[in-house]
Design a protein around this nucleic acid. Structure first.
Lengths: 266, 266
DNA sequence: TGTCATTTGTTCGTATGTATG
DNA sequence: CCATACATACGAACAAATGAC
């Protein structure tokens, strides 16, 4: 709305579609388009700030805001005394930083009480090996646990899960119900391994009677089936879990923040 | 180290070690420390720009540069007319980087063909406003789309979804079935906004007959119900989607990599 | 409802510092 | 040393969003 006509700013004003965008945003998009169109090629320098300022009849500040945007997207690199160079033709696939992903895991386990129902040692058959990303025949320790909300006394569990660790780490399963800590950090602390990667698969399922019973849920009701595999730096599976989370008691929330390429370097 | 300038007259110069750092960088560091120390708690507001300006005896520009830094790290969120609130206590040392999260989204849409079934304009009622994180009464454009695997001709859809964009971006819905691109990048390109954060909720559901029909699925079969909200840097919802992904056709996979504690700054 | 004060967002102007060739 | 170009910093003003009255 009330967009006051700027004297001589015809260049930017013309390119501004839909009054919503600010000048620097408009300029940023314009430059992006020019870069993508090949007017400024990768490795080449774009006009100086002063030149852009004149060309679009805006203040230097506005130019810098626009350039800052493109720099933060990795399209441009600026060096004092030299100029501003095109680094990439288009924005590379951006990384996402999961805020709340690890935190959420930690909070979940910290907010719940774990009860070990059953334990056993087994050798991974073909099916399990596939699902846990280990070799067939690998010796594993398994624990079947239930998670409860700590406040309420012994009501319905929030989730049930199978936890698997390699035979050499089997000891940690003795402590998982005491320490109010994620199992993977227990493994890390007790055995000096360092989890570097986590893989996760989520499927929707309906509970079979055998699965529903320990959860005190109705057979046939829906649940999230979440399996996770934890790997160390050599890509060995260190730990895995397969859990069932009834829909009426649990929803899986994640928040991603696009990672800004660290400024002022490279 | 950090001495605490509490009342009025402590300049930044005192806290500046060596003098190597710029004022805004020094201020940014100082604020970070205060947040980590708990002086400003998560959810609380930090002093206004004017107050910080006075307290540290710097220009508003310098204050804003410092705040911009913290905002880009996800520690702060600012909203015009309200203030600047602390969002997180620290940039956690162990961060998870979702590899495959964004990539996976992109691949999914690139690997599928989208068909727009229906479109309409609507005002968000209380329920929808809640689910999409917008204000009640917000005008929205809605598209109901089906996703197919491109190879097979007109078989069963992989997913159905409702896509919502703000009224001023409604135009992009005209192109979503043509461009083999994620909708959010269309919005970014066409309107010069930049998605900075994505929030996602996953629940397991059973399909109601109305939902099952367009999917050519059996009513009562299970599906993942995934809603996502896309936000810009001012925390405004730019786009949202609510999708149903039948379990037998789709599973949600994510891979997280723990970020190495590189830490180079300061 | 609408007005008003507050707070951040955008834009201009100007000056000086720093890195480079 | 000097000219160039980006980096930092100060000041000022208005716009837009919001919440309170």
């Amino acid at each position: 709305m009330s967009l006051k006509p700027v004297n001589g700013a015809a260049t930017l004003a013309a390119a501004r579609r839909g009054g919503g965008a600010s000048r620097y945003a408009t300029l940023a998009r314009l430059l992006t388009e020019e870069i993508e169109a090949g007017r400024y090629k990768v490795g080449q320098m774009i006009p100086t700030e002063a030149e852009l300022q004149q060309r679009f009849d805006v203040s230097r500040h506005t130019v810098r805001e626009a350039l800052r945007d493109l720099k933060s997207q990795g399209l441009l690199t600026a060096r004092a005394g030299v100029g501003t160079v095109v680094r990439a033709k288009s924005r590379p696939t951006r990384f996402m930083q999961g805020i709340g992903t690890l935190k959420e895991l930690v909070q979940f386990v910290e907010a719940t009480r774990m009860k070990v129902v059953k334990r056993r040692v087994l050798l991974a058959d073909a099916d399990l090996a596939e699902r846990l990303a280990v070799k067939e025949g690998q010796q594993l320790h398994e624990a079947f646990v239930l998670r409860f909300l700590p406040k309420e006394k012994e009501t319905v569990p929030v989730a049930s899960m199978f936890i698997y660790v390699r035979a050499e780490h089997g000891g940690v399963l003795d402590h998982i119900d005491k320490a109010g800590q994620p199992v993977f950090s227990l493994v890390e602390r007790h055995h000096g391994v360092r989890i570097v990667e986590v893989s996760q698969q989520i499927v929707a399922v309906t509970l079979a009677p055998v699965e529903a019973r320990p959860l005190k849920a109705r057979a046939g009701s829906t649940a999230l089936h979440i399996s996770r595999q934890y790997f160390d730096s050599q890509d060995r599976m260190v730990m895995a879990s397969i859990g069932l989370y009834p829909s009426d008691r649990f929803s899986h929330n994640t928040k991603f923040r696009i990672q800004p390429p660290d400024e002022k370097d490279s």
